[in-house]
Nucleic acid binder design. Structure first.
Lengths: 345, 345
DNA sequence: CAGATCGCCGAGAGCGCTCTCACAGCGTTC
DNA sequence: GAACGCTGTGAGAGCGCTCTCGGCGATCTG
């Protein structure tokens, strides 16, 4: 409640320590090239006055902000239905704070927001951006690249193959899907179906590719497109059961979908996993553990993805500066997945 | 990749428009007191050059940052198990961006992080803070008050009764609990139990109070302390069933706990809701809809809570400045809850 | 129609910091 | 013992903006 205590400036610290502003600045920023007795004196003055550098003034001259934007597009859709982004944020946050960077969160919904984000990023308020954009046709990535802000994407952007240079971190959706389907096959299942996610998202497309890697195009009827929701899972499962009553295994593109499928299976009197084995994707623990039976699924290390995204970006930012150029330019990363066996397959 | 295009300054815009820096500044900040032809000329120059104000320079003189910190303490515990914080964040974000404020996210885990956050807030990088601190003994709120940053808490802080002035937004945990228990009573249940959350959190304590408001202290054995987790819910339910086999209704302090209880009930052969009616709290949709049977629960408007928190803070910040003082000082808000009837009660 | 008033605009100071540059002090070399 | 390097320190400019203040033309008053 003490209204705006006048925060001490460099000048004040300098006066108290009996040195110049420049020396205090040097000490505050690492203390290279200042002799020990002075360093101590300055440190003490800083301590006594409770000096904290004014970031605005600093940024003004360094053109650095030590801040990174995290852009999450269209949160309504999916983001907040599961802890996916929360975990990524945690990973990002850890890495960022470890390097004294701030996290500016930008949530967007709809087109006008895109413009706002574009302006913000172009405005040079942050040093870089971490962007989550799920859909192929999202204009956001384009805007951002246009803004010229160093960026790392969460999940492979749909267009990244052709053009070079887009940095991203993704998990091995295709490999994970393969593993899931192989597991079902190893269980002796022969009529294995796949309920996909929305195929305009690379994660869903990649999981479908993984499925096909193992199953081939043999019976296209066993692939039903869906939308990552439980309701979608129910619908797809019904369709599947009607068209192919002999189906004995289902690989669902995510856990929510699997949960929906599970319900329909029970309702239709199929036992899981005896009659039909089910595997999900994501390992959304609160869901996967609550289903009946608990869901076998493919886990991705989400927090680690976040951490890696931040690390990649920070490294890129560092390279531009005068950091040790030894590490070379960073490149995109695809993280492995692991199959988590519970009861459903 | 166009390395740091030299962003245009006020000076540049002024030159192009043939006016002074001051005039451009006026136009950029609302344009009061500048005659129309000039306004238009400046606007055009801004457009043509793609001018974006340098926030650092601006903050340096205004001492305003148009940024608010959101502090989430100890995310590991509970935060990321459910979409609770994600939804709050969304509400906060909406309100903040509507008033052109940025959201700086600070996630903490452990004591050293507290110090870091304290330093950051004291450093005056943001105009205010929105703080989520779940536990009574959390030192963070103290630190923050000490830092003298205008703050709004998410959820009633444990100590706020005695001391004055702490602004918070909470949902009506006590009232919601009362409603839940009354609903069970109206169903004709007489042996109503309560599985609590961790009682060092005000939300859990308030829900217990609400339970007692209706049930009195009649049978203390019907209250079992737990921890907001599914496993805790299972444990508590078992204990309850062992001690009171005649229990015919359970009010669980949250949905996760209720899900655990449901499982034990089924395992022990009790039908829900016929033998035992169950109500949760939170309306964590992905969980509440997946349980068998779907969970009756108490919903709180989480996104609205976030929005309100931001609104309160913004208003407080505005008051300090030269805004219309008409609205008076804002005060804490308690949001109503609603009972969502599904199948479990 | 003179004088007071008002609205609009420009000049200039200064926010708190970093960074370059000059210079002081010291040790080294021939 | 003079010339030369160092290293450590201070002086000062300037980052891009806001905001006060003073000037000046236009309007209002008596």
């Amino acid at each position: 409640m003490t209204d705006t205590a006048p925060r001490p400036t460099l000048e004040a610290v300098a006066a108290r320590a009996g040195v110049s502003r420049a020396t205090v600045s040097r000490v505050v920023n690492g203390g290279d090239g200042v002799r020990e007795p002075l360093v101590a004196r300055v440190r003490r003055a800083v301590e006594e006055l409770g000096y904290v550098p004014n970031q605005a003034a600093r940024s003004l001259v360094t053109k650095r902000h030590d801040a990174v934007a995290v852009v999450i597009a269209e949160p309504e859709t999916r983001v907040f239905a599961d802890p996916f982004f929360a975990l990524q944020l945690r990973g990002i946050s850890k890495e960022l704070t470890a390097h004294d960077n701030q996290l500016v969160l930008l949530l967007t919904e709809g087109r006008d927001d895109h413009a706002r984000v574009g302006r913000y990023l172009a405005g040079g308020h942050v040093d870089g951006a971490l962007v989550f954009s799920l859909h192929l046709d999202d204009p956001l990535p384009g805007l951002i690249q246009h803004a010229g802000v160093p960026t790392v994407f969460g999940g492979r952007p749909g267009w990244s193959d052709g053009r070079g240079g887009a940095l991203y971190v993704d998990s091995d959706n295709r490999g994970g899907a393969r593993e899931a389907v192989r597991h079902l096959a190893a269980l002796g299942r022969t009529r294995i179906a796949h309920i996909t996610g929305p195929l305009d998202q690379t994660s869903a497309a990649d999981r479908l590719d993984g499925f096909r890697d193992v199953m081939g195009d043999s019976d296209p009827g066993l692939v039903v497109e869906s939308d990552f929701t439980p309701a979608g899972g129910e619908r797809a499962m019904r369709e599947l059961l009607d068209r192919h009553p002999d189906v004995d295994a289902v690989f669902a593109a995510n856990d929510l979908t699997a949960a929906g499928a599970l319900r329909v299976l029970r309702e239709r009197g199929r036992r899981v996993p005896e009659d039909v084995a089910v595997i999900g994707f994501d390992d959304m623990v609160p869901v996967a553990e609550q289903t009946d039976p608990p869901l076998t699924t493919v886990r991705q290390d989400i927090e680690e993805m976040g951490r890696l995204m931040a690390r990649l970006l920070l490294r890129r930012l560092g390279d531009k500066g005068a950091e040790a150029g030894g590490a070379g330019t960073p490149s995109s990363v695809v993280l492995p997945t692991t199959l988590v066996r519970r009861a459903s397959a």
